[in-house]
């Protein structure tokens, strides 16, 4: 194993560049060094102008997502030893988002979509605190627990060609969070979320590429969530037809 590795970073400095261009940095190679730690090394020792996001270093905060050799991955969960044989790796900001600077993607669109699906427990009427907590059985928890592991890192958006084609698509994580709360026994907001799921920008924009689930660092399986959203949307459509046939209003 060589004692250093070449890291090519797509630099984009909005004041001086028209488009990102790669810059090479040689970083000392050790088996326990993560890509994020390598970026910290570059920033501290080689080039203080390099911009990237990070926080927790343990795949919880979801900040350090970048394209590593063309794949959306977390910098803190990817180790340089994986690329040691080739002796190089290439980094760029997450695909399908505008690049703000260097490795920093502007994920504002994703945040907007997240808000659209109301990712919180909605209650039709608030209970007084004296009535105690909203309780749940282990079986009820099991129904949504997998989907609640999402850390909003945005890797699934970088993996989604439909979001890349048109970023009005609500996208994998927002639709997963919609299902997560719809499946929660304490939530009353599923009727309110159906409009977003049924809309042009909702579940039907997904063509089941499935790459979102492959890249998810928390095994959330957004492709499953989005496609279960299609089942829910179809049932909702049928129920609405019935309601309309009976002269009632649809929901």
């Amino acid at each position: 194993m060589s004692d250093s590795i070449a890291i090519y970073v797509a630099r984009y400095r909005p004041g001086q560049d028209e488009a990102p261009t790669e810059q090479r940095y040689d970083v000392p190679l050790s088996t326990d060094l993560s890509v994020l730690e390598a970026l910290n090394y570059i920033k501290d020792e080689l080039d203080p102008t390099l911009a990237y996001r990070w926080s927790c270093r343990m795949a919880i905060c979801g900040s350090c997502g970048v394209m590593i050799d063309g794949e959306p991955r977390l910098g803190c969960k990817t180790f340089l030893r994986e690329f040691a044989d080739r002796g190089e790796l290439h980094l760029r900001a997450l695909d399908n988002f505008p690049v703000e600077r260097d490795l920093i993607a502007d994920v504002e669109r994703f945040m907007d979509h997240l808000e659209t699906v109301k990712p919180w427990t909605v209650h039709n009427s608030e209970r007084p605190v004296s009535e105690g907590e909203y309780r749940q059985t282990p079986a009820e928890l099991e129904r949504y627990q997998q989907f609640s592991q999402c850390i909003n890192c945005g890797l699934c958006y970088a993996a989604c060609p439909q979001f890349g084609r048109d970023d009005s698509f609500l996208g994998p994580a927002a639709l997963t969070l919609a299902l997560r709360y719809n499946l929660d026994s304490r939530d009353d907001g599923s009727a309110g979320r159906m409009a977003a799921l049924n809309a042009d920008e909702g579940v039907w924009r997904c063509t089941f590429v499935g790459y979102c689930s492959e890249v998810c660092p928390k095994d959330v399986d957004p492709a499953q969530a989005v496609n279960r959203g299609k089942v829910a949307s179809t049932i909702n459509y049928g129920l609405n037809l019935l309601r309309l046939a009976r002269g009632e209003h649809d929901t």
Binding site: P14, P20, E71, V99, E100, D106, P161, Y211
Partner: peptide, 25 residues
């Protein structure tokens, strides 16, 4: 400071660059 985010266009060849996309197509 004014912002100037860079937007990469999605090229027709997007599906060629990743085996997962090739399998999908």
């Amino acid at each position: 400071m004014t912002r100037k985010p860079y937007r990469a266009p999605q090229r027709w060849s997007w599906w060629l660059k990743n085996p997962a996309y090739r399998r999908y197509l």
